[in-house]
Design a protein around this nucleic acid. Structure first.
Lengths: 403, 403
DNA sequence: CCTCCGTTGTACGAATCTGAACGTTTGCGG
DNA sequence: CCGCAAACGTTCAGATTCGTACAACGGAGG
């Protein structure tokens, strides 16, 4: 509670800060913001302009631009400078719609536009789409999700890094170091951690032999497998029971695969499974029910991914990758990048998936609260400000941030 | 405790302390606070300003900044929700002021307040400060940087995770998984990558035997060492020449340490060093100059950290950790967390350091004279080479195991 | 006890910062 | 092309702050 008034240099620093954030400043607004006269703001702007730290324009100031003086400061009311961001995702009907949705909603909030292209998991096709977007001259930035599993990754990264617009990878992680001036930025779900959360959830409820079913060919699998190894080592579990076959219904021979899986479980005394892709998990659950196995009691299941898990019977406990948040964060990061330019340090962001506890992992019980069966070590009995979220509360209603 | 009168140096220390806490000082207020005359305060400020410890401004003083000095503000009258964020950092006079500065400026822009506490690298003291902040009931969130090197880390993490307000760690990375409903969030500089950038810079300019000097006891060292191992493996360099002794001037016996270091360099044919902490790097550089070694030509040096590197002679090439950005990002993340509540998925953010190329790593370009004497086969041109990048070695990108 | 010297406090003119007024310029719409 | 409204910047005035000049205070040493 000192004094609201700032020193001149502080004011100027603040102004530059706002400028870097917003891309432009209007004299009137900034004067009101700081509670100083407009004249003072103009004086500050003049001083900063004389050092080439900003460009004076009628109505305010903008970041100094190499491309000649900017047009005109945005009028009040418009939320932000308008950009168009290109987005190329490998699929428009699986996994990605939620990410695109998050990106769109963030774009709307930021006053920018998304130019979406569906591609495939093939790099050549990606390249085609990207080239087309660039050549259209309509996009100032790109959100990409190329497949980084195959060969030629360094070449891909270099090609991407040399595009004339900033790029942010979504749900992809390039090599540690990229041969570009600014390291390539990315935003992705931390699937390894998501898997770990699932396994620890099962472990906390007494399961000591846990298996993992992976969908072959998904870029996610690699992360899941890594998380699997780490968590098994930490919890002293055997990491051996891993199946790398899709057990989805459409898959030919899926029943045999499931049968073999269950045999292995029986042999190893395994009481819980984490299954990648909730349709696969549902497939296993249904098979079990047909065979007379009770789902949480005889075999606990946690699905990885939460597209349809809540529709299953019983409703599936599932790890929900933060897809909308990935899209949203990528857009916000891109807007910041576009506004602040290449001097902004690059960021790499991991977002944590969420465990949605439903009925396939722990027995459904009545409101009368009973602590988990046998609680392994590390039960923080401290005060919980907010109780953990149970299934019913996860309606699938996306949380939209205000603004 | 003592008599109410302080001696000059004590007063100045107090002033610096207040300055680091508040980001700025007003002569009138500080004079009233200490019960001395304003003139005395001005004299103190003038003295400190002459040592570049602060920047004198009309009405008081601010922390020194690169350009147009100043930082913090308090915004008023706008509709943004008001929060107060507690911040506990282990030191107020080394490394952290820049982070605090970034946090303050972001806080100003977001219309929130920072309640800063200086602590030590000792957990008990941290705990005391944190408890005090919580009990004051004045903070809605906490930015913490506890020392995670010693024992009892799981307990610390759990204690932190059960605080009644959200927490974000800055420049610290807790274990992969934390036993809280929402995984603990953090924002930190990617020092490992920063080191890699430094090494690759040297590698690009022809150096094939590179050494590393680490400051013992710094939390940063572990990250640097990790980056060192990774980059050496990638570039096929020997990772053996690592010194873990401070070579700073104050250090007793630093000259012997440097002498031994240079002996090892000579023996191994090492032509370049990365040295943690720019004062240490300057110390080595000065020693070399005294011994008649030319700095970029006979031994290239990249300093890690960029507090004073630009003041050296020759000006030091340095890796600059993105400290202000770390502070800023943490505040922005906290504000988002406070607005959106605990349903917002947690994020972990890595920010890339920046390589500031000055004169200690590549020969200063001279227009008329000879090209660089007989430096290693690097080109003084600015064209960027494209060093090889191995594909699947990135941290977090697992190698798929057969069977 | 006295003097020397460094530090601190008071006084006051100079310098700086800020804001209001007002004539001039710029941008925008008809 | 013209006119209006907003934005700009020069000028002046009020308030605050700065720093030199000089006096007062207190400890160290002779």
């Amino acid at each position: 509670m000192t004094d609201d008034r700032l020193f001149g240099p502080q004011r100027q620093e603040r102004l530059m800060d706002e400028l870097r954030r917003q891309g432009s400043i209007r004299v009137r607004e900034f004067a009101a913001l700081l509670g100083v006269s407009e004249l003072t703001v103009r004086r500050d702007i003049a001083a900063l302009a004389s050092q080439n730290l900003l460009t004076k324009v009628h109505g305010g100031a903008t970041l100094p631009t190499d491309l000649g003086p900017a047009t005109q400061v945005r009028r009040r009311g418009t939320a932000a400078p308008r950009f168009t961001i290109g987005m190329v995702v490998p699929s428009l009907d699986y996994y990605w719609p939620a990410i695109v949705g998050g990106a769109r909603s963030a774009a709307a909030a930021q006053g920018v536009q998304i130019n979406l292209r569906g591609s495939t998991y093939d790099w050549a096709e990606d390249q085609r789409q990207i080239t087309r977007l660039i050549e259209s001259q309509q996009v100032q930035g790109l959100l990409l999700a190329p497949n980084l599993d195959g060969d030629g990754v360094p070449e891909m990264i270099e090609w991407i890094g040399n595009l004339p617009v900033p790029v942010i990878l979504i749900e992809r992680q390039p090599p540690r170091w990229t041969p570009t001036k600014n390291q390539l930025e990315w935003v992705r779900s931390d699937h390894a951690l998501g898997l770990e959360i699932a396994v620890r959830h099962l472990h906390e409820h007494g399961h000591r032999s846990i298996g993992l079913v992976l969908s072959k060919g998904s870029p996610t699998s690699a992360h899941l497998e890594r998380g699997w190894e780490l968590v098994c080592a930490d919890l002293d579990l055997s990491p051996d029971l891993v199946v790398r076959e899709s057990v989805r219904m459409q898959q030919p021979g899926y029943r045999e695969t499931i049968a073999q899986l269950l045999d292995r479980c029986r042999a190893a005394g395994t009481t819980a499974l984490v299954i990648h892709s909730d349709p696969d998990a549902m497939s296993v659950a249904q098979y079990c029910v047909e065979r007379g196995m009770a789902i949480p009691e005889d075999l606990a299941i946690v699905a990885y991914d939460d597209e349809v898990a809540k529709l299953a019977e019983p409703a599936m406990t599932a790890v929900r990758p933060p897809k909308p948040m990935v899209g949203r964060t990528a857009v916000e990061l891109m807007v910041a990048r576009l506004i602040e330019g290449r001097r902004r340090p690059s960021q790499r962001i991991l977002i944590t998936p969420e465990l949605i506890i439903r009925d396939s992992s722990i027995p459904h019980f009545q409101p009368a609260n009973q602590p988990a069966a046998d609680s392994p070590p590390g039960r923080p009995t401290t005060r919980r400000a907010h109780p953990p979220v149970r299934s019913s509360d996860a309606e699938g209603v996306p949380v939209r941030r205000p603004g």
